[in-house]
């Protein structure tokens, strides 16, 4: 039932793409968008697939970000340990003892330094990311043949299927969103469109959203829908309302277009798509914040994909939510009342 969105998720989550190094991920997204009338890639902005009437008045931008959080190598010490800092918001608590993938001249695995319980003493404080180090098990001379300062590393964890429709792995934030918008484009590709649809997998969201900003300027949409992950209830949290598998989270915020939010709700009801609401006070912390104020301003909506364990290598999403986001986007594009 969700085999295509699962396939897209697996394929899209595979390549490395920390902010500023998204080339491989962009190439995979471009390949998956190849059914579009035109595909444009730009290392600074991302991959865009364009469908429908090029000169239509209604120009819809679909956005999800292709980059993932990770680490950058800042130094190699005399013993060959790699010292790092974060690129995007890495959760320091997930690092000690973790298996990491380092993208040097070759791709190699290391382990983040941690003392075993037998030798550990002191408190339960965990060092900041830039006070932790990666061990490749090689002397400095060997390390330097493979790794250079500026190379990237991630807590890699390929997508695996959990029970039901759930999947877990690294980079679901926001390759899961990319899978949603590409899936939405698949659902409408054989329809006669009276609008232009631009499917953007954008770069650098985790460090400020530069990819969406410059791409929106170039593409000049009249309206935009972004898909990003948001918090689902899970152990240890309080005050959250959205549940994993509960359907797309339709965003309401001062910075989002209220008519679009309402219309998305009506369309969900009409098409029997389960949905939940996500209410934010001002900015959304997603690409919507920069898309909305591009050029003379763009009406923008946000559909969030419920997720657990955000910014870890154990992110969990539900394929049913992803398919439902794609369906809701398709309904929005084909909306006769637009």
């Amino acid at each position: 039932m969700y085999s295509e969105v699962e396939r897209l998720t697996r394929v899209l989550c595979e390549p490395h793409g920390t902010p500023g190094c998204e080339e491989e991920a962009i190439a995979v997204a471009a390949k998956e968008l190849s059914f579009c009338d035109e595909v444009i890639t730009n290392p600074l902005g991302g991959a865009v697939g364009i469908l429908g009437k090029r000169d239509a008045k209604r120009r819809i931008l679909l956005d999800a970000h292709i980059d993932q959080i990770g680490m950058v190598i800042t130094n190699i010490d005399d013993e060959g340990f790699l010292h790092v800092t974060q690129v995007g918001g890495v959760d320091r608590r997930t690092m000690p003892g973790s298996i990491v993938t380092v993208f040097g001249k070759e791709t190699v695995h290391g382990i983040v330094c941690v003392l075993p319980p037998h030798l550990a003493h002191g408190d339960d404080k965990i060092d900041a990311v830039d006070r932790q180090a990666i061990d490749l098990g090689m002397p400095k001379e060997e390390v330097e043949k493979i790794v250079s300062i500026g190379d990237r590393a991630v807590l890699a964890n390929p997508i695996k299927k959990l029970m039901g429709n759930r999947v877990s792995g690294t980079a679901l934030d926001d390759r899961g969103g990319c899978a949603c918008i590409i899936r939405a484009a698949q659902l409408i590709k054989d329809q006669e469109l009276d609008c232009c649809v631009m499917v953007l997998c954008s770069t650098r969201e985790e460090v400020g959203g530069q990819g969406a900003r410059i791409s929106t300027y170039s593409l000049e949409p009249t309206e935009a829908l972004a898909v990003d992950v948001s918090f689902a209830t899970q152990p240890g949290t309080s005050g959250l309302t959205a549940t994993l598998g509960g359907g797309p989270m339709i965003g309401y915020s001062a910075s989002l277009d209220r008519k679009m939010s309402k219309r998305l709700m009506e369309l969900a009801k009409e098409h029997d798509i389960p949905y939940q609401l996500e209410v934010m006070g001002g900015r959304t912390g997603t690409n919507c914040d920069s898309i909305g104020i591009s050029r003379g301003g763009v009406r923008t909506g946000l559909l969030s994909l419920p997720q657990r364990n955000m910014h870890t290598s154990a992110e969990v999403c539900d394929l049913a939510d992803m398919e439902n986001i794609a369906k809701l986007i398709a309904a929005y594009i084909l909306d006769k009342e637009a």
Partner: peptide
């Protein structure tokens, strides 16, 4: 044989 993950409250929260 059954894959699982140990939950981590998102750092943002």
């Amino acid at each position: 044989k059954i894959p699982g993950v140990i939950c981590a409250k998102p750092v943002h929260l």
